[in-house]
Design a protein around this nucleic acid. Sequence first.
DNA 1: GTCTATACTAGGATAGAC
DNA 2: GTCTATCCTAGTATAGAC
Lengths: 205, 205
Amino acid sequence: MRSSLQPKISFKQQMLQAREEAIVQTVNRLLAEKGFDAMTVDEVALGVGIAKASLYKHFPSKEDLAAAAMVRVLQRTRDFLQTLPATDAPLLKLQALVRWAMQVQLAGEMPSLPSQNSSLRANLMGNNAYLDVLVQVSDQLGGWIQAAQTAGQINPQLPAVAVLYTLYARACDPVLGFLQAGGQHSNEQIIEWVLSTCFDGLIAR
Amino acid sequence: MRSSLQPKISFKQQMLQAREEAIVQTVNRLLAEKGFDAMTVDEVALGVGIAKASLYKHFPSKEDLAAAAMVRVLQRTRDFLQTLPATDAPLLKLQALVRWAMQVQLAGEMPSLPSQNSSLRANLMGNNAYLDVLVQVSDQLGGWIQAAQTAGQINPQLPAVAVLYTLYARACDPVLGFLQAGGQHSNEQIIEWVLSTCFDGLIAR
DNA sequence: GTCTATACTAGGATAGAC
DNA sequence: GTCTATCCTAGTATAGAC
């Protein structure tokens, strides 16, 4: 009985999920392009090709739209981390992550939220899907950071949390965009330079 | 004849300048606290203690208010650079600058503008006072950077402009605020850590 | 769950008197 | 140049029909 109904339900759910995925993809692009404040819900609706009111049936507020995009990018991050060979040294994996995140940013797919906005922060802190995946990623990275410090690869004098924040910050470093705007260098070249400043520092080794 | 009138004119001008200085100071604080988008002109007027319309007699738009705050902080920067002993090594002066900028940020006095906002960028690019002092500071720093690279102190493989952007970026690095929000460490300690990641890198030396 | 049409508010900017 | 009062657009969110 139930099994004969399952396909229909599943189909409906798939449609719903596909629609929401389209929405979140548009939000992600707009957040990367213009940031949270400059992004308007009208633009999102236009980009998805549905009415604004329909958007609000899926997500109850603009903040929730942004949160969904953040969840998505964190899931992509978590998935990427899982593709890294367990045999690689922790430092190598951290560098791979930062390189990957910079590629995402230069490809215009890294959503950026204002770190100051309070209503947005409150919403995120009440969003369990967001908190869950953020903790997952942070735990994974935190483990690698401590291992790399114990192995003497990453400066053990730095608190692990400072290292973690630094890595997160590089993922949305404005330096990338500035260098790209100059138009003089390839994305690959830019990424290697910023990677170098991040891990090796400005001072010559 | 003229000389007997000068005091009165000068007094008026001084009052004007003092009023505008008070405005810019308030704008600076609000920009540091909440950023450009979240700052409202009403708040500025309230903070200064004058009517909003009066504000618009001094500055024709919100963008011009922000520009004035940026000019002010760049002038402070230029003045700070001039206090550095000419005998100091270029690298030492660059480190002193970054340390100073971080102190300013942690003191809540570093105005932060969204690097994406287009109307704001257009306004800044048409503001000669801003461009002038920006060029002054950038030229000064650019000279030190190249000298430090020639001396083999700063990694000569990096383009000077990449180094310059990196220094500017550290001045408004969100990592500082995150670490400060943790409430675990002193401002001095936080600054030394971020300075270390900036110049020495994450990898142990 | 999608649409059109609209409510409502915040916030940048201005009018006009003094 | 300062004020009070107001305009007006943009933008979030919702009502109500289908």
